[in-house]
């Protein structure tokens, strides 16, 4: 049986009909038409469907939509400010952090939650925060650079990415 749900997605309140067994992922993609949120396993194993729920990154495939009423849902579609890209989007675009682009929405949302609380996250903090999001294309380092660069851009520390790379290298390999 479908019930009427009131969801606040990217600041827009929408009424949708969905059965109790639908995940937030299904409702976003199939009922709200927000296909920016991806899926790779539907079992919580890949991170592709990460969205923010009350500011925290969650796996949309493992959250029931009925449990999301009266909570703030943020998806990749809400990341930019109108046509202006979020610093994370800009950094991902310019630094080669998106290749096939399929893990990108989930990466961006997890990274946004991190930067919202810790804009100057260290390389290791970025890697730990994103460790539940798999990417098969990039080898991850360009994503780390993009997240760090975006965080610094948003705080006005406009260090060019090359310098950031050198700074990280000078800080030593955190796992070497």
């Amino acid at each position: 049986m479908e019930t009427a749900l009131k969801l606040n997605v990217n600041g827009e309140v929408r009424q949708v009909l969905a059965p109790a067994n639908h995940s937030l992922l299904e409702v976003l993609r199939e009922r709200c038409g927000l296909t920016g949120t991806k899926h790779g396993c539907e079992l919580g194993e890949c991170g592709a469907c990460t969205v923010l729920l009350d500011g925290e990154p969650v796996l949309a495939c493992l959250v029931l939509a009925v449990e999301c009423e009266d909570r703030r849902v943020e998806t990749v579609e809400g990341l930019s400010n109108g046509a202006a890209l979020h610093p994370l989007q800009q950094a991902f675009a310019d630094l080669g952090a998106a290749q096939c682009g399929y893990c990108t929405p989930g990466m961006l949302m997890t990274a946004k939650a991190l930067l919202d609380s810790n804009p100057l996250a260290s390389e290791m903090e970025v890697r730990e925060a994103l460790a539940g999001n798999l990417c098969r294309c990039t080898g991850y380092w360009k994503i780390v650079e993009a997240v760090q660069w975006a965080g610094r851009m948003s705080t006005g520390d406009m260090v060019p990415p090359q310098c950031l790379r050198e700074r990280n290298a000078a800080g030593g390999c955190s796992h070497g």
């Binding site: 991170g47 990460t50 729920l53 925290e56 990154p57 969650v58 493992l62 959250v63 989930g106 460790a131």
Partner: peptide, 9 residues
């Protein structure tokens, strides 16, 4: 336990 994006839930 698991990953950061799962531990939030």
């Amino acid at each position: 336990i698991s990953s950061p994006v799962l531990r939030t839930t």
